[in-house]
Structure formats: structure tokens, C-alpha cells
Design a protein around this nucleic acid. Structure first.
Lengths: 226, 226
DNA sequence: TTAATTTGTAATATTTCTGTAACATTAAGA
DNA sequence: TCTTAATGTTACAGAAATATTACAAATTAA
């Protein structure tokens, strides 16, 4: 992940929170606490995406949006709006004024991160990886194919999502609960032991003769991609 | 994550929500529903961080803050204030009175969690660090791996937690009771001599040929990481 | 509709971990 | 040196966690 993200938001603590986490994900981040300043800095910074607070002390989010859309160099800069709860109606206006998505405060960072990637995948696929690669394992999100050492592997939908999940954070250990939350659609209730079975199926599929095991069991903790 | 967090907040449902989630993240959590009680319990509990409601039935958040800042042992205890929306002006006062950060209700748990980690990262990095390092010993919390002199070491779950515990405070001697309280899940009853056995197992695992012993026995007191 | 694939669960097998008791050794003071 | 309390060490049975298998229900493809 090598994209650049600019943040215009007046609450310093929110900026700090987002900036830190995005940087941890590999984005290059810069920010400004007010609109006018922000516009200038942004144009110097040339981000791949802008996170824009709706309510700013000097300029409104809409004004900034319009300004950006008027600038030939930033006509198609993806913008995600940060709105406070209760500004629902405004959201529509926001989308009309050329915003790509919006997130309502308070939001979790994971939610924001997912939105950012979704927007980037549409607007600027180069910035977001469509191919996830780990060692000799390759997963193509667009074509929905998986290869181990260039040999294609057939996976069921659930195993595919499971592997995709592991590939987004190799080496990191995930608990069964975390896996459930992320890999399974919300509001389904699945026994946590069920994951063991899917892990087994995934292992069986991606293991090929002579190559090493790729999924590690960490007792009392969960599983990880090696 | 083995840090200790104390909560003073009168809304039981909020306490429950926070406590449950923080425990899921590995924090040890204790709480009180009112100010005066809370102050006493807090000082026994010795948390790494305090979550403090702004509006309490008996004492105000500010009063508690001041009390804490007056106590030499808690002068630098990080405090995050929980404020209701619309108390914005108060926030300033809060920060002046020695609060490290504040979160406005309603907040998402993820937001709170990020703030907590941000504050701890500043004030007490060992509590939230991903890698704990002491001499040639390295423990990775995310990957759940342990290395001695770059050689990976396999540990059982209990030995892992035990080592993690020692690594957050090297050189400090812990009694068997302290170890039990922190390393073992609450409400389990384990013989105190059981710890000796785990210490032995841990020693055996992390000792490698030609390298020095890392766990020190302090007769009549307990154990420490050198 | 039928056939094929995928899913979740329960039952069973296997592996690994834990706590304890019993015995051995060590340190420190009388 | 002897005594005693504290710690070290070992072995083992039961517990707990994970692996594996089989199967029926659900979903999808043909």
C-alpha cells in the first residue's frame, strides 16, 4: 500500500488517530486542521485520496469540494467525507457535490479503512493491491483465482474469503472470533469450532506436495498465515 | 496486551461494554460506579490508565483528577476523560486539569480503544508495544512468537503469558501471588507452587547453550527477569 | 428437477498443556 | 554442621485445545 492520503479535519485527536493507523497500513499521510490552509497543502501534496471533515471552522466541506473539483488537476481526486451523526440529509448533498463516500462519526478505524480501500479500488486500482501475494501463494481479488507456485487452486467461496483475510495480514495471529467477525457475513451465527473445519479444508487445498505448510496453529490464540 | 485499566463511570451499561471489550483485547480491567469508592480501589489496583467519567453522582471528574495528581504515586497516571456531548467547553478545563485525552459520548469502542493505545504509547510504551525486547530475548505479541538470539522458541500458552508479563517489567521482582493475579485468568485457583513449575518450564525453553540464565530467583520474594 | 458442490455441526481421535504431588536440592540461620 | 524452609525437578493423569471425519442440510449448477 503506497498511496498518499490527505486529511482535512479540525479535531486534532481524530486526525492523530486516523493518521497513525493509516501510516501503520503503509499509506503516506499528511493533514491540515483547517480548510484554507488545507487546500493549499493538499495541492502541493498531491494525494490519492482526501478525507474531508464536513464541518470546519473556516470553509465548509462543500466549499472545499467545489474548489477541488474546479481544479483541473484534482477534478477526479476521490473524496471521503467525515460527517457527524445527525447530518444525514447533508450527506445527500455531499454526494451530489462530488463526494465518493462518507463515513459517520463516531466510526471505527476499520470501517474507515475499508471505505478508503473500496474507493481507491474503484478510482485508482494501482494504489490498492488486487493481487495478494505471500511467498508462492497468490490470490487475485478481481479474477477470484488462487495460485500456489503458479499452479491454480480451486477454493470454495468461504475458503477463498478466509485465505483473502489471512493474506491481508500475513504472520499475524487471529482468534477464531476475529476470523468469524471478518470473514463471515454479519449476523450469521456460526459455531466457533466450524472455523477449524474450514482451516482444515483450506490447508488441504493450498498444500501441495513438497511445499511447506502455510497455516500455523497457535494454541489458545488462533491461526495465522505462517 | 497485559496492561491494567481502571474505570470510574456511573452508567453500568457503559462500564460493562468497555470492560468486556477491553478484556477481550487482553487488558486487565477493574471498575467502580462512583467517585469516592473508585479512588480507593484505584489506588489498590494500580492501573496503567484510568477512564474517568466527567459527571459522577458524588465527586466531579475534575475533583478526582486533582486528587490523583496530588498523590505522588499516581502523579503521572494517564487519564482519559469520558464526556457527554455538549460539554465541549468543559473539555478545555479538563485538559488543563491534567487529563491526557478525552472521548465524547457516544463513542464507538474502537475509537476509545485507539485513544487508549495512543495515550499508553506516549506514557507507557511497554504496555502496548508489539514487540517486547530484553537483551537477546524478543517477544512478538501480534505474531505470538518468541526469539532468543534470533532463534525461535516454542512456548505453551501459559509460558508465553508468563514471559510477556516479565518482559513488561524487566528486573522487577514479582511475588508468586502477583504473578498469579496477572498471568492467570481471574477466578482460577491455582496452587502457588505451580508457578515454580512454570518458571522451570519457561527457563528450560528460553535457555540456550552458551547464553546466560534470564530468570532470577529471589528467595522469599519471587522471580524476576534478571 | 437432478446432480454436484458447499456448509455447518456433531462425534471422535489426537495432540498438547496444566496442575499437583512427591522427592531432591539448596540456602541461610542457629 | 545441622535444621529447616524455600525452591528445583520430575513424572503423570486429567483437562483442554485442536484435528479429522462423516453426514445431512443448504445452496448452486446443469
Amino acid at each position: 500500500m503506497k498511496g498518499k492520503i490527505f486529511i482535512i479535519e479540525d479535531e486534532a485527536s481524530i486526525v492523530q488517530l486516523i493518521q497513525h493507523n493509516l501510516e501503520k497500513e503503509g499509506f503516506v499521510v499528511s493533514s491540515s486542521l483547517n480548510g484554507n490552509e488545507g487546500l493549499k497543502e493538499l495541492k502541493k501534496f498531491e494525494p490519492n485520496l482526501l478525507l474531508l471533515d464536513w464541518m470546519l471552522p473556516d470553509l465548509s466541506g462543500i466549499d472545499i469540494c467545489k474548489n477541488i473539483r474546479r481544479d483541473i488537476n484534482f477534478k477526479s481526486l476521490p473524496i471521503i467525507m467525515l460527517t457527524a451523526k445527525g447530518e444525514e440529509e447533508d450527506k445527500i448533498k455531499g454526494l451530489e457535490s462530488g463526494v465518493d463516500d462518507y463515513v459517520t462519526k463516531p466510526f471505527s478505524f476499520n470501517e474507515l479503512s475499508a471505505r478508503i480501500k473500496a474507493v481507491l479500488r474503484r478510482s485508482d486500482p494501482k494504489v490498492v493491491a488486487n493481487e495478494l501475494i505471500f511467498e508462492d501463494l497468490k490470490l487475485d481479488r478481481i479474477e477470484k483465482r488462487v495460485f500456489r507456485s503458479d499452479k491454480e487452486i480451486q477454493l470454495g467461496p468461504t475458503e477463498f474469503r478466509l485465505l483473502e483475510f489471512f493474506l491481508t495480514n500475513p504472520k499475524r495471529v487471529y482468534s477464531r472470533d476475529q476470523i468469524l467477525e471478518t470473514v463471515w457475513p454479519n449476523n450469521v451465527n456460526v459455531e466457533s469450532r466450524t472455523i477449524d473445519v474450514h482451516i482444515r479444508r483450506l490447508r488441504q487445498s493450498i498444500n501441495i506436495e513438497g511445499k511447506k505448510e502455510l497455516i500455523r496453529t497457535v494454541r489458545a490464540a488462533g491461526y495465522s498465515l505462517i
